[in-house]
Design a protein around this nucleic acid. Structure first.
Lengths: 152, 152
DNA sequence: TATTGTTATACTCTATAACTATA
DNA sequence: TATAGTTATAGAGTATAACAATA
């Protein structure tokens, strides 16, 4: 069955990459949420921790820019992570307006725990894919350009 | 650059299909929303129209099942489309509990108008892809299983 | 002036529970 | 009792505008 077929009675949606993206992300997100139960974490919070872990001392606004989250919406997310003692925040020594972020010990441990679960989740979702196919999918998705107005 | 590299300083997110799906859908959705300005339509409403067009007389609950929208959340969406005179609703002759849906003339025209815009949007997002690559991506995405609990 | 973070607010999508009417 | 649609409500993501502090 090729892309032009309508196996599920979805009409003009059938050939659309945008439709399949939405469906696939819905499927991923459902399984992801299930896997994360009990950790108190969700996709966005883990995303922030992962980026701070990869770039210690990164500024709050830059994290938002990478994730496509607007400044205004970063505030409560960061506050959540601070309240849970997963993140540490300090005024940037070179710019009194900005905050620099680092993981706490608990943040580091939490991220490690989440990573294990996420890998199990991804393996489950992609169980029917060969290693090559996963790489192919990853490389194709990466080439989709982000033409959003800089998220702010 | 292969899937294990971290070109953007995103750490453990780098190899994750789930992360790339989220990013790609965000990019698609931003461009889609821009393209649809002035039509008064959004992704979910168009999805409903497309399915009803493909399966005239389909029941409201079945549309929700296909799109992964819960019964409770279908109500206001259907009401919006009824109020805009894009959809027609009638009690199922064979089951007094259910509603069967059909497009109105205006709904048919609106869907056609949206389809033209959507195709322009998809072409723009996938401008750097060959035809084969688009088909590849589509087929890979289709194989991602939906393990959500039936959306209801 | 421009930028960083903040507050306030609103819209959309998603989720659950309880209700009704039909089957 | 089971199902279709509804109502009410809440959580999460996303969007804009206006503000204070700093550059």
């Amino acid at each position: 069955m090729d892309a032009a077929d309508d196996g599920g009675g979805i009409g003009i949606l059938s050939p659309l990459i945008g439709y399949e993206l939405r469906r696939a992300l819905g499927a991923f997100l459902g399984d992801f949420t299930e896997e994360m139960k009990g950790t108190g974490m969700r996709q966005m919070l883990i995303g922030i921790l992962a980026i701070v872990a990869s770039q210690p001392g990164i500024r709050q606004g830059d994290v938002g820019r990478i994730l496509g989250v607007k400044r205004a919406n970063m505030v409560s997310l960061i506050n959540e992570l601070l309240a849970a003692d997963l993140l540490h925040r300090a005024v940037d020594a070179r710019d009194g307006r900005a905050f620099v972020l680092n993981l706490t010990k608990r943040g580091d441990a939490k991220l490690a725990e989440c990573q294990i679960r996420i890998l199990a989740h991804e393996a489950r979702m992609l169980a029917d894919f060969t290693e090559d196919e996963v790489t192919q999918l990853h490389n194709l998705l990466r080439r989709i350009p982000d033409r959003r107005p800089a998220a702010d």
